[in-house]
Amino acid sequence: MAPLLELNHVTKRFGQVVVARDVSFTIEDGAAVGIVGPNGAGKTTLFGVMSGDLRADSGQVRLAGRDVTRLDAAERTRLGIGRTYQVPRPFSGMTVFENLLVAAQQGGERRGAASHSLAASALERARLSERANLRAGQLGLLDRKRLELARALATRPRVLLLDEVAGGLTEPEVREVVGIVRETLAEGVAVVWIEHVVRALLASVERLMCLADGAVIGDGEPREVLSSAAVREVYLGSEAAFEAAS
């Protein structure tokens, strides 16, 4: 059977700068994969290429064997690739519930009552029930991150791409996000998670990839990857990775 998500020799340039060079990897159904790497390593760019926000200059993206390289973000969402953004992108003028309803109706379950249930489930999963009828523009950072996650969940993804959902949160808040991610994993949804908060990753993923300068320089069991020589070199000076790994 074809892997859930597959990147084949993907290259992406911004002008002269190569931000992804000949990247290939696969994500299996239900897998929990973390991605680390220094700023500018090309992590978010890779997400863009997977989600359809960016078009790869060369190479191929496949979802469950189907070539989705030429499909735009909306079509890929409908096929099961959900994503969150590093800086949340709420629909500020709409209520929290309406934010989720758009995602449920467009990316998930189109019918009236079923879309309402789907949106309400995502609301509860992300612990946002109390905020359902608040305008998204009024939410604080934690709630924006929750909403970002919930909106991706409401599209009923097969693979969920999380871009630093724990960034900027306090310790208890990070634990809560980890809880939401693990509940999602338990449902069989594959998760690919870019995160600088390595503790959060180690509590959630079984595979870790390290990106540097647009290339995968480490891929495997999280603690092994973090302690490998190549990864140590790019992370030299970043204590978080070592502390967590040791």
């Binding site: 973000a73 909306a74 992108r89 709420p90 629909f91 003028g93 467009q106 990316g107 991706a152 599209t155």
Partner: peptide, 24 residues
């Protein structure tokens, strides 16, 4: 209708709307 909700979402954040599955 569903279209109205999509239009409201696009008005607030077009990238977010596409990512939610909206055919803008």
């Amino acid at each position: 209708s569903r279209l109205g909700l999509v239009l409201a979402a696009v008005r607030d954040d077009e990238v977010g709307a596409r990512s939610a599955g909206a055919r803008v």
